[in-house]
Protein backbone atom coordinates (compact mmCIF):
# COMPACT_ATOMS: atom_id res chain seq x y z
CA UNK A 1 0.00 0.00 0.00
CA UNK A 2 2.67 2.37 1.09
CA UNK A 3 4.69 1.74 -2.04
CA UNK A 4 1.74 2.32 -4.30
CA UNK A 5 1.10 5.69 -2.69
CA UNK A 6 4.74 6.63 -3.12
CA UNK A 7 4.67 5.50 -6.74
CA UNK A 8 1.61 7.69 -7.27
CA UNK A 9 3.35 10.75 -5.93
CA UNK A 10 6.49 10.20 -7.94
CA UNK A 11 4.38 9.69 -11.04
CA UNK A 12 2.68 13.00 -10.31
CA UNK A 13 6.08 14.65 -9.83
CA UNK A 14 7.50 13.13 -13.00
CA UNK A 15 4.61 14.55 -14.99
CA UNK A 16 5.15 18.04 -13.61
CA UNK A 17 8.93 17.80 -13.95
CA UNK A 18 8.43 16.91 -17.60
CA UNK A 19 6.14 19.90 -18.07
CA UNK A 20 8.93 22.06 -16.67
CA UNK A 21 11.48 20.57 -19.06
CA UNK A 22 9.38 21.01 -22.19
CA UNK A 23 9.67 24.76 -23.02
CA UNK A 24 13.45 24.80 -22.76
CA UNK A 25 13.83 21.46 -24.50
CA UNK A 26 11.63 22.54 -27.42
CA UNK A 27 13.77 25.67 -27.78
CA UNK A 28 16.99 23.64 -27.77
CA UNK A 29 15.63 21.03 -30.19
CA UNK A 30 14.40 23.68 -32.63
CA UNK A 31 17.56 25.78 -32.71
CA UNK A 32 20.37 23.37 -31.80
CA UNK A 33 19.26 19.85 -32.75
CA UNK A 34 17.39 20.58 -35.98
CA UNK A 35 20.43 22.42 -37.43
CA UNK A 36 22.38 19.19 -36.87
CA UNK A 37 19.99 17.47 -39.28
CA UNK A 38 21.04 20.15 -41.76
CA UNK A 39 24.49 18.57 -41.83
CA UNK A 40 23.13 16.52 -44.77
CA UNK A 41 23.81 19.67 -46.83
CA UNK A 42 27.51 18.80 -46.70
CA UNK A 43 26.80 15.63 -48.68
CA UNK A 44 24.44 17.21 -51.20
CA UNK A 45 24.49 19.68 -54.02
CA UNK A 46 22.20 21.82 -51.91
CA UNK A 47 19.81 24.40 -53.28
CA UNK A 48 17.42 26.25 -50.96
CA UNK A 49 14.44 25.69 -53.30
CA UNK A 50 14.80 21.89 -53.09
CA UNK A 51 15.52 21.80 -49.38
CA UNK A 52 17.49 19.40 -47.19
CA UNK A 53 15.66 16.29 -48.33
CA UNK A 54 15.13 17.15 -52.00
CA UNK A 55 18.62 18.23 -53.07
CA UNK A 56 20.68 15.69 -55.05
CA UNK A 57 23.03 13.52 -52.98
CA UNK A 58 26.69 13.77 -54.03
CA UNK A 59 28.40 11.80 -51.26
CA UNK A 60 31.92 12.97 -50.49
CA UNK A 61 32.33 15.10 -53.60
CA UNK A 62 32.26 18.36 -51.60
CA UNK A 63 34.95 17.06 -49.27
CA UNK A 64 37.16 16.12 -52.22
CA UNK A 65 36.69 19.54 -53.77
CA UNK A 66 37.45 21.16 -50.44
CA UNK A 67 40.69 19.21 -50.04
CA UNK A 68 41.88 20.49 -53.43
CA UNK A 69 41.30 24.17 -52.60
CA UNK A 70 44.47 26.15 -51.96
CA UNK A 71 42.65 28.49 -49.56
CA UNK A 72 41.90 25.68 -47.15
CA UNK A 73 45.52 25.09 -46.23
CA UNK A 74 46.12 28.77 -45.60
CA UNK A 75 42.96 29.13 -43.53
CA UNK A 76 43.84 26.08 -41.47
CA UNK A 77 47.34 27.37 -40.73
CA UNK A 78 45.99 30.80 -39.78
CA UNK A 79 43.43 29.24 -37.45
CA UNK A 80 45.97 27.00 -35.73
CA UNK A 81 48.53 29.78 -35.29
CA UNK A 82 46.03 32.34 -34.01
CA UNK A 83 44.16 29.89 -31.77
CA UNK A 84 47.26 28.39 -30.18
CA UNK A 85 48.77 31.86 -29.67
CA UNK A 86 45.63 32.90 -27.83
CA UNK A 87 45.51 29.67 -25.83
CA UNK A 88 49.05 30.11 -24.55
CA UNK A 89 48.82 33.84 -23.81
CA UNK A 90 45.35 33.56 -22.29
CA UNK A 91 46.67 30.90 -19.95
CA UNK A 92 49.87 32.60 -18.80
CA UNK A 93 48.95 36.27 -18.56
CA UNK A 94 45.90 35.87 -16.27
CA UNK A 95 48.06 33.78 -13.90
CA UNK A 96 50.77 36.44 -13.79
CA UNK A 97 48.16 39.14 -13.31
CA UNK A 98 46.41 37.23 -10.52
CA UNK A 99 49.71 36.69 -8.69
CA UNK A 100 50.67 40.36 -9.03
CA UNK A 101 47.27 41.49 -7.80
CA UNK A 102 47.42 39.01 -4.94
CA UNK A 103 50.61 40.70 -3.72
CA UNK A 104 48.67 43.94 -3.19
CA UNK A 105 47.40 44.10 0.35
CA UNK A 106 45.66 47.48 0.11
CA UNK A 107 41.99 46.69 -0.60
CA UNK A 108 41.26 50.30 -1.63
CA UNK A 109 43.61 49.78 -4.56
CA UNK A 110 42.90 46.10 -5.22
CA UNK A 111 39.10 46.27 -5.54
CA UNK A 112 38.86 49.04 -8.17
CA UNK A 113 41.65 47.44 -10.21
CA UNK A 114 39.80 44.13 -10.18
CA UNK A 115 36.51 45.75 -11.16
CA UNK A 116 37.97 47.75 -14.04
CA UNK A 117 39.96 44.93 -15.67
CA UNK A 118 36.84 42.74 -15.96
CA UNK A 119 35.10 45.46 -17.95
CA UNK A 120 36.45 44.77 -21.49
CA UNK A 121 35.15 41.19 -21.27
CA UNK A 122 31.58 42.50 -21.28
CA UNK A 123 31.99 44.85 -24.23
CA UNK A 124 31.23 43.26 -27.59
CA UNK A 125 33.83 42.75 -30.29
CA UNK A 126 31.77 44.97 -32.61
CA UNK A 127 32.28 47.90 -30.27
CA UNK A 128 35.87 47.06 -29.35
CA UNK A 129 36.85 46.43 -32.96
CA UNK A 130 35.35 49.78 -33.87
CA UNK A 131 37.39 51.48 -31.14
CA UNK A 132 40.55 49.54 -31.99
CA UNK A 133 40.32 50.36 -35.67
CA UNK A 134 39.81 54.01 -34.80
CA UNK A 135 42.82 53.96 -32.49
CA UNK A 136 44.97 52.16 -35.07
CA UNK A 137 43.50 54.10 -37.98
CA UNK A 138 45.25 56.58 -40.19
CA UNK A 139 44.34 59.51 -37.92
CA UNK A 140 44.14 57.42 -34.77
CA UNK A 141 45.97 57.93 -31.54
CA UNK A 142 48.65 55.32 -32.23
CA UNK A 143 49.74 57.10 -35.39
CA UNK A 144 49.60 60.43 -33.55
CA UNK A 145 52.00 59.11 -30.89
CA UNK A 146 54.23 57.48 -33.53
CA UNK A 147 54.22 60.86 -35.26
CA UNK A 148 55.81 62.52 -32.19
CA UNK A 149 58.81 60.27 -32.79
CA UNK A 150 58.94 61.11 -36.47
CA UNK A 151 57.27 58.01 -37.94
CA UNK A 152 55.08 58.23 -41.02
CA UNK A 153 51.45 57.24 -40.40
CA UNK A 154 50.71 53.59 -41.20
CA UNK A 155 47.65 51.44 -41.82
CA UNK A 156 48.23 48.90 -39.04
CA UNK A 157 45.14 46.81 -39.70
CA UNK A 158 46.10 46.48 -43.36
CA UNK A 159 49.50 44.97 -42.60
CA UNK A 160 49.44 41.16 -42.88
CA UNK A 161 52.73 40.70 -41.02
CA UNK A 162 51.43 42.17 -37.76
CA UNK A 163 47.76 41.15 -37.98
CA UNK A 164 48.02 37.88 -36.06
CA UNK A 165 49.96 39.66 -33.31
CA UNK A 166 47.26 42.32 -33.12
CA UNK A 167 44.56 39.65 -32.85
CA UNK A 168 46.33 37.79 -30.06
CA UNK A 169 47.28 40.99 -28.23
CA UNK A 170 43.81 42.54 -28.29
CA UNK A 171 42.19 39.25 -27.29
CA UNK A 172 44.51 38.90 -24.30
CA UNK A 173 43.83 42.52 -23.39
CA UNK A 174 40.05 41.88 -23.47
CA UNK A 175 40.12 38.65 -21.48
CA UNK A 176 43.02 38.73 -18.99
CA UNK A 177 41.01 40.30 -16.18
CA UNK A 178 38.11 37.94 -16.55
CA UNK A 179 40.46 35.00 -16.95
CA UNK A 180 42.12 35.88 -13.65
CA UNK A 181 38.89 35.57 -11.64
CA UNK A 182 39.26 31.84 -11.20
CA UNK A 183 42.89 32.13 -10.06
CA UNK A 184 42.04 34.91 -7.63
CA UNK A 185 39.36 32.67 -6.15
CA UNK A 186 41.91 29.89 -5.74
CA UNK A 187 44.42 32.34 -4.20
CA UNK A 188 41.90 33.61 -1.65
CA UNK A 189 41.58 30.03 -0.44
CA UNK A 190 45.25 29.76 0.59
CA UNK A 191 45.76 29.56 4.36
CA UNK A 192 47.51 32.83 5.43
CA UNK A 193 49.33 30.85 8.14
CA UNK A 194 51.38 29.19 5.40
CA UNK A 195 52.81 32.56 4.35
CA UNK A 196 53.42 33.64 7.92
CA UNK A 197 55.21 30.43 8.83
CA UNK A 198 57.39 30.64 5.72
CA UNK A 199 58.12 34.33 6.35
CA UNK A 200 59.25 33.53 9.91
CA UNK A 201 61.57 30.92 8.44
CA UNK A 202 63.10 33.72 6.41
CA UNK A 203 61.47 33.26 3.01
CA UNK A 204 61.52 36.35 0.80
CA UNK A 205 58.76 37.68 -1.47
CA UNK A 206 59.74 35.66 -4.51
CA UNK A 207 60.34 32.50 -2.49
CA UNK A 208 56.81 32.81 -1.08
CA UNK A 209 55.40 33.13 -4.60
CA UNK A 210 57.59 30.30 -5.86
CA UNK A 211 56.97 27.83 -3.02
CA UNK A 212 53.47 28.67 -1.77
CA UNK A 213 51.45 30.67 -4.32
CA UNK A 214 52.37 28.74 -7.47
CA UNK A 215 51.96 25.23 -5.98
CA UNK A 216 48.55 26.26 -4.61
CA UNK A 217 47.52 27.39 -8.08
CA UNK A 218 48.86 24.30 -9.84
CA UNK A 219 45.59 22.27 -9.86
CA UNK A 220 43.65 25.23 -11.29
CA UNK A 221 46.35 25.89 -13.89
CA UNK A 222 46.33 22.25 -15.00
CA UNK A 223 42.54 22.30 -15.22
CA UNK A 224 42.38 25.52 -17.27
CA UNK A 225 45.19 24.36 -19.57
CA UNK A 226 43.44 21.09 -20.25
CA UNK A 227 40.05 22.66 -20.86
CA UNK A 228 41.57 25.20 -23.26
CA UNK A 229 42.68 22.37 -25.59
CA UNK A 230 39.16 22.33 -27.00
CA UNK A 231 39.77 25.77 -28.51
CA UNK A 232 42.45 24.62 -30.93
CA UNK A 233 40.28 25.41 -33.99
CA UNK A 234 38.69 28.46 -32.41
CA UNK A 235 40.31 31.51 -33.96
CA UNK A 236 37.59 33.77 -32.55
CA UNK A 237 35.05 34.57 -35.25
CA UNK A 238 33.62 37.74 -33.67
CA UNK A 239 37.01 39.34 -33.23
CA UNK A 240 38.45 38.46 -36.63
CA UNK A 241 35.23 39.20 -38.49
CA UNK A 242 35.09 42.69 -37.02
CA UNK A 243 38.78 43.51 -37.42
CA UNK A 244 39.90 41.98 -40.69
CA UNK A 245 39.77 43.18 -44.27
CA UNK A 246 40.81 41.81 -47.65
CA UNK A 247 44.42 42.98 -47.33
CA UNK A 248 45.07 40.71 -44.34
CA UNK A 249 43.29 37.56 -45.57
CA UNK A 250 46.69 35.92 -46.09
CA UNK A 251 47.43 35.82 -42.36
CA UNK A 252 44.11 36.60 -40.69
CA UNK A 253 41.45 34.56 -42.46
CA UNK A 254 40.29 31.73 -40.15
CA UNK A 255 38.00 28.75 -40.75
CA UNK A 256 34.92 30.48 -39.38
CA UNK A 257 35.33 33.68 -41.37
CA UNK A 258 36.10 31.67 -44.51
CA UNK A 259 32.97 29.55 -44.00
CA UNK A 260 30.97 32.74 -43.55
CA UNK A 261 32.22 34.26 -46.80
CA UNK A 262 31.97 31.08 -48.88
CA UNK A 263 28.55 30.15 -47.50
CA UNK A 264 26.69 33.35 -46.84
CA UNK A 265 28.37 35.84 -49.16
CA UNK A 266 29.20 33.60 -52.13
CA UNK A 267 26.24 31.26 -51.34
CA UNK A 268 28.15 27.99 -51.86
CA UNK A 269 26.08 26.45 -49.11
CA UNK A 270 27.24 22.85 -49.45
CA UNK A 271 30.95 23.64 -49.55
CA UNK A 272 30.69 25.89 -46.50
CA UNK A 273 28.61 23.28 -44.58
CA UNK A 274 31.28 20.77 -45.40
CA UNK A 275 34.06 22.91 -43.91
CA UNK A 276 31.85 23.75 -40.94
CA UNK A 277 31.14 20.08 -40.32
CA UNK A 278 34.82 19.15 -40.38
CA UNK A 279 35.53 21.89 -37.87
CA UNK A 280 32.66 20.79 -35.60
CA UNK A 281 33.80 17.16 -35.63
CA UNK A 282 37.43 17.96 -34.86
CA UNK A 283 36.36 20.37 -32.11
CA UNK A 284 34.04 17.75 -30.62
CA UNK A 285 36.91 15.28 -30.45
CA UNK A 286 39.31 17.83 -28.97
CA UNK A 287 36.83 19.03 -26.34
CA UNK A 288 35.85 15.48 -25.38
CA UNK A 289 39.49 14.53 -24.98
CA UNK A 290 40.16 17.65 -22.91
CA UNK A 291 37.18 16.92 -20.64
CA UNK A 292 38.28 13.32 -20.22
CA UNK A 293 41.79 14.46 -19.32
CA UNK A 294 40.40 17.07 -16.92
CA UNK A 295 38.25 14.40 -15.35
CA UNK A 296 41.20 12.06 -15.02
CA UNK A 297 43.78 14.49 -13.69
CA UNK A 298 41.88 17.34 -12.09
CA UNK A 299 38.77 15.52 -10.87
CA UNK A 300 36.64 17.82 -12.99
CA UNK A 301 33.09 16.94 -13.96
CA UNK A 302 30.81 18.80 -16.34
CA UNK A 303 27.72 18.18 -14.25
Amino acid sequence: MKEKKKGGRSGYNTLHYTLMIIPGLVWIVMFSIVPMVGIVMAFEDFSPSKGWFGSPWVGLENFEYLSRLKDVRKVLVNTLVIASGKMICNLIIPIVFAILLNEVKNMKFKKPVQTIVYLPHFISWVILANIISTMLGYRGVVNVIFGWFGYEPQVFLGNPSIFRGLLIGTDVWKEFGYGAVIYLAALSGIDPNLYEAAAIDGAGRFQLIRHITLPSLAPTIVLMATLSLGNILNGGFDQVFNLYNASVYSTGDIIDTWVYRIGLVKVQYSLASCAGLLKSVVSLIMISVSYLLAHQFANYSIF
Binding site: W52, V259, G263, S273, G276
Partner: peptide, 9 residues
Protein backbone atom coordinates in the same frame (compact mmCIF):
# COMPACT_ATOMS: atom_id res chain seq x y z
CA UNK B 1 25.71 21.74 -37.00
CA UNK B 2 27.73 24.74 -38.15
CA UNK B 3 26.72 28.20 -39.28
CA UNK B 4 25.14 27.31 -42.61
CA UNK B 5 22.66 24.59 -41.49
CA UNK B 6 21.73 26.85 -38.55
CA UNK B 7 21.10 29.76 -40.91
CA UNK B 8 18.95 27.50 -43.14
CA UNK B 9 16.96 26.29 -40.12
Amino acid sequence: GGTIPWYMT
